[in-house]
Design a protein around this nucleic acid. Structure first.
Lengths: 138, 138
DNA sequence: CTAACTGCAAAGTTTTTGCAATTGC
DNA sequence: GCAATTGCAAAAACTTTGCAGTTAG
């Protein structure tokens, strides 16, 4: 139920991973993070990436997103925000922050769940792909 | 961009899969569907399950959900509705239908995307798991 | 007849894990 | 020192695909 917490020790690998995620706006998958980390730390391994993604997520320092195709993506921006994804090219953007967050209390009342968070993702065609479609059909 | 459409032929396997999904409220994963189908059609294969899930989804007869852990789940209920998932046991329920759907046009204006749909999922602790926690900590 | 579909098994992806060596506190 | 962490490689989990045989229209 409640996670057994073991004493965390700092690691250069985990610090690097968090730094990369905080400076990336593309909601990357694990393998992209592995390749990116490798440019700065050539011997880092995939296992380390996966293990640290789990740790950082458990610590509440990153978000884990399950948006499409059953692939996990990661987000270093912990501010509450929503996502929007292109059905054509697959990119995932943030919805601009001026959007209001939904009120969870109404759902809590009718669902009998104790609610902690919610994820909202819009799906559509991004500006670039709208233009490409025009070009292709011309 | 636009899917090449080939002439579909009916198949007992696909019919069975759709029937199972329409009678299942648990948002199952492919492997569960494989086992379930196998009780009624013992020689059906995993490949057939995966291929037909793709076809049914392309046809717009089922929904593909990516809610947690990067695992795809399937939903035979095509009515618009939202989901709520337990962080403890992982179950995924429907949010009762009295909830209003969000208006997509506001996001369309500020995002420059042409929006087709959206997915909203709440995360929390279900009633059963709230009780189990009480028992365990007693 | 023939294109779509199937079962099977092999291959492809993605993620987890066991282990001996290393590292942070 | 010692538990947490790492790299590596093997294993596990999940999905796709090639192929020869079957089936729907």
């Amino acid at each position: 139920m409640i996670e057994k917490t073991k004493k965390l020790k700092s690691s250069r690998q985990r610090d690097l991973l968090l730094k990369i995620l905080r400076n990336t706006k593309t909601h990357p998958v694990a393998d992209w993070l592995f390749e990116e980390a490798r440019t700065q730390m050539p011997n880092i391994s995939r296992g380390t990436i996966y293990r640290n993604l789990g740790i950082l997520h458990d610590e509440g320092k990153i978000k884990e997103l399950s948006i499409r195709k059953g692939v996990l993506r990661y987000d270093g921006d912990m501010r509450k925000h929503y996502h929007i994804s292109c059905l054509d090219c697959g990119r995932i953007d943030d919805v601009p922050h001026q959007i209001n967050m939904l009120d969870e209390s109404q759902i809590e009342e009718i669902s009998e769940y104790q609610i902690y968070s919610h994820h909202l993702t819009f799906f559509g065609i991004c500006k670039d792909c709208q233009q490409n479609t025009l070009v292709n059909s011309a």
